[in-house]
């Protein structure tokens, strides 16, 4: 009764994803940058420079040894800082990855 052919092998429908040749995705970037010195710039233009402890899917960020920079001047220092992700414009590596 069930004489339908078996489902085609997957390569007929969609080609398998190419091997991870370029690992440039945001997730990969974040894996590589944890524990490194980073610059976090907020939409307001304020920068936070410190060591990236960790982050989550909302781009909430925990930084260590943080310096707050406004217009190129250090305006505050924090041992630890939690930055709410909605304020984040970018996270930039400040040392070689």
């Amino acid at each position: 009764m069930d004489d339908s052919p078996p489902p085609p092998p997957p390569e007929n429908s969609t080609p398998p994803p190419p091997p991870q040749s370029h690992t440039g995705s945001p997730t990969d970037f974040l894996k590589g940058v944890v524990g490194k010195r980073v610059i976090v710039r907020l939409n307001s233009g304020v920068d936070y420079r410190g060591i990236l402890s960790c982050l989550d899917g909302y781009m909430n960020i925990a930084l260590e040894q943080t310096e707050e920079h406004v217009n190129g001047r250090v305006t505050n220092r924090y041992g630890d800082a939690f930055i709410r992700g909605n304020n984040v414009l970018y996270i930039s590596a400040a040392e070689p990855l």
Partner: peptide
């Protein structure tokens, strides 16, 4: 583990 702090996610800092 890059940091000695034992923080896994940002909210740990708040907790």
């Amino acid at each position: 583990d890059p940091s000695s702090s034992g923080i896994q996610e940002p909210f740990d800092l708040i907790r």
